[in-house]
Amino acid sequence: MKKVYIYKGFERFWHWMQALLIFTLAFTGFEVNGAYSILGYETAVNVHNISAISLIVLVVFAVFWHFTTGEWKQYIPTAKNLKAQAQYYITGIFKNAPHPTRKTILSKLNPLQRLTYLVLKLFLIPLMFVTGLIYMFYRYPMGGEIYSLNIGSVGTIAILHTIGAFLLIAFIIAHIYLTTTGHTPTSNIKAMITGWEELEEDEDNKTETQEKTE
């Protein structure tokens, strides 16, 4: 085992900022939905809007970062080991079987993660952004003057946005739980905070560690 610098500064900032914003959005969003009344409707709407814009800005930079660093390749789906990974969560994990895929700097995600995050980034997040932006700018700011956004009712948009919110919450629950399935229950979370994680030695990991230790 070797300590490896796996998550870079921006990557971690992006992850935790996104986590914070999504929690804020969920908390205020369900108040706007009418599920409870804690902040007060007006505050909830304002906080929700500001968080939404912040998240969009953050994601724009994250997308830029992914493409300039080549990190986007992490999400290319692969069928290799996909079944084995699923099998691991269903049975292997209870028998202390080894992880079927090895985490390296060039391949941080296992095949299930690749697929899940790809769906998240290609469908769920865009669904929330598009419905959210229409919700926000629907006949806004001066109503009938913006004909291109002249949608009959915000009802469908709002319902799609709500469905997306439920899916995201379910994702987060699974996501948080699955962080405990690393080398030790907390090793994954620690890595996302500090950037360093103990990984099995490997050619890919070696190069990076050497650079860091120099």
Partner: peptide, 18 residues
């Protein structure tokens, strides 16, 4: 559709169950 006042009961129920 008046946010907070209106909601789709089915969607909210299924969402919570999910």
């Amino acid at each position: 559709y008046i946010p907070a006042a209106t909601h789709n009961k089915t969607v909210n129920l299924l969402g919570i169950l999910f």
